[in-house]
Design a protein around this nucleic acid. Structure first.
Length: 454
DNA sequence: CGATTTTGACCCGCGC
DNA sequence: GCGCGGGTCAAAATCG
């Protein structure tokens, strides 16, 4: 897009900080996206460039959805549609209409390879309180964006080789520091095809490859390949390669991706495992002995360890993550620092916690479904908090409403991340990013709206 | 009748 | 400089 005015995270004013947001917005975001109407594209860019290297964080959500658009709780108005090259399906452009001045926009497009997958890309930050139904999604995307952004800022501040890019365009690449963290919020699936939901962070927009691209995080809720690092996905490779993606650079020695997926191969109710392919992939989740449908379109629930009714998801998750990491270390001789970094990243990064919490919330709480259960305001102030509210075994009701909020977390087989320039996080990067976001943002803030220091 | 969607035109950045 | 492609505008059409 040309309008690059701010790089803020995408949104989110979770109920918790709506008030703050209002203010924050002014400064952090004041630069409302392109002034409605008079778009001064160049002007904004300037602002942007000052603040964020001219890049605006985007969060792309891939989810199976049979409806034209995902119901994320917000009100959107379509303002344009266009057929993008490489994809026969038209891309629709929406603008948030909850508030007239809200700068948030989103692009919706069907995946060319799998029409059942809807790719929704959010950009901008809401400058108004969001309906409860929309907070989950907003939090998730916001947190994801925050991570990405914080990573970016870190990169800028430290010339480490973090974000080396995968893209050919220098401008684009530059910045994302948190590359390739893959979070798989898995839900039950079978061994043959576990398909969790993954968060891919790339430094390049897959939907709009404009050079001026913004770092983009992809939340892949379609779930595809098991421990699959996106690299294992043929589609992924295909796309990335098209954009001069160089895996070798993404997977430097110790690159580690965290993949919280379910694996049925594992006997444990809540299992975790590492898999290494190029890098290490941490998978976490439970398995669903039952289902082994290839296209689990109906597996819309996230069931984390149904056998531990009293353990909070977060606690259990962290414990297991840690344990698994160490276990793997022994088995696979992983470098200690790798483990430490990964663990640290997971446990320390509030952004991740928020993202995970939000995702879980949306699933378990079923909040984001059809428009408006304002009473169901699940305030997640931290994963711990979330954990307290949610118990293992909570099953998500697969709501099939109008939107796709329901199928949001459905699993599926082929996920084709048509991304370009996806990068995987290196442990050190993860740790850095984690610590960074920690210091940068008052942690505890779930929806920490990234105070991206402009 | 107001709000939303449709759709062709226009603007802008980038690569050649 | 030109063409291409992404993104947005805005008038017309449609919907509730």
């Amino acid at each position: 897009m040309d309008h690059t005015s701010s790089t803020e995270p995408l949104t989110n004013n979770t109920s918790a900080d709506n008030s703050l947001d209002e203010e924050k917005k002014e400064d952090v975001m004041g630069e409302t996206w392109p002034p409605p109407k008079t778009l001064k594209r160049s002007g904004e860019d300037e602002i942007d460039s000052h603040h964020n290297n001219g890049k605006r964080a985007r969060v792309s959500v891939r989810a199976r959805c049979d409806t034209p658009t995902m119901n994320d709780g917000c009100q959107w108005r379509k303002y344009g549609q266009k057929v993008a090259k490489g994809n026969p399906c038209p891309r629709a452009y929406y603008r948030c209409t909850v508030a007239s001045s809200c700068p948030v926009r989103k692009q919706v497009q069907r995946c060319a390879d799998d029409m059942s997958i809807l790719i929704t890309t959010y950009e901008g930050t809401h400058n108004h309180p969001l309906p409860a139904a929309a907070t989950a999604m907003a939090s998730t995307t916001s947190a994801a964006a925050s991570m990405l952004i914080s990573g970016s800022s870190s990169t800028s501040s430290r010339p480490v080789g973090l974000g080396q890019s995968s893209t050919s365009t220098p401008a684009t690449t530059t910045s994302v520091g948190l590359h390739g963290l893959t979070y798989n919020l898995a839900n039950g699936m079978t061994s043959s095809q576990p398909r969790p939901h993954q968060f891919y962070i790339h430094n390049n927009s897959q939907i709009s490859p404009s050079p001026n691209t913004h770092p983009t995080i992809t939340l892949d809720l379609t779930a595809s390949n098991p421990f699959t690092s996106p690299f294992a996905n043929p589609h992924f490779n295909r796309f990335t390669s098209s954009s001069s993606y160089d895996p070798s650079r993404l997977f430097p020695l110790k690159s580690t991706s965290l993949n919280f997926a379910s694996m049925d191969s594992n006997p444990t109710p809540t299992s975790m495992s590492w898999a290494t392919n190029h890098g290490s992939v941490l998978s976490y989740g439970n398995q669903y002995p039952q289902s082994n449908n290839r296209n689990n379109h109906n597996l819309g629930s996230l069931t984390l360890a149904s056998r531990q009714p009293h353990e909070s998801i977060y606690q259990s998750f962290m414990q297991k993550t840690s344990a698994a990491l160490h276990h793997q270390q022994q088995q696979q001789h992983l470098l200690p620092d790798t483990i430490a970094a990964a663990t640290k990243a997971i446990t320390a990064d509030p952004s991740f916690q928020t993202a995970l919490a939000a995702a879980l919330t949306s699933i378990i709480g079923g909040g984001a479904s059809g428009g408006g259960n304002n009473n169901e305001k699940v305030q997640v102030s931290s994963m711990e908090n979330l954990g307290q509210k949610m118990k293992w075994g909570d099953q998500v009701s697969t709501q099939r409403g109008s939107g796709c909020a329901s199928s949001f977390l459905n699993t599926s087989s082929a996920s084709n991340a048509q991304s370009s320039g996806m990068m995987f996080l290196q442990p050190s990067s993860a740790a850095t990013a984690a610590s960074k976001s920690k210091s940068t943002s008052p942690s505890e803030n779930n929806n920490h709206q990234d105070h991206n220091t402009n």
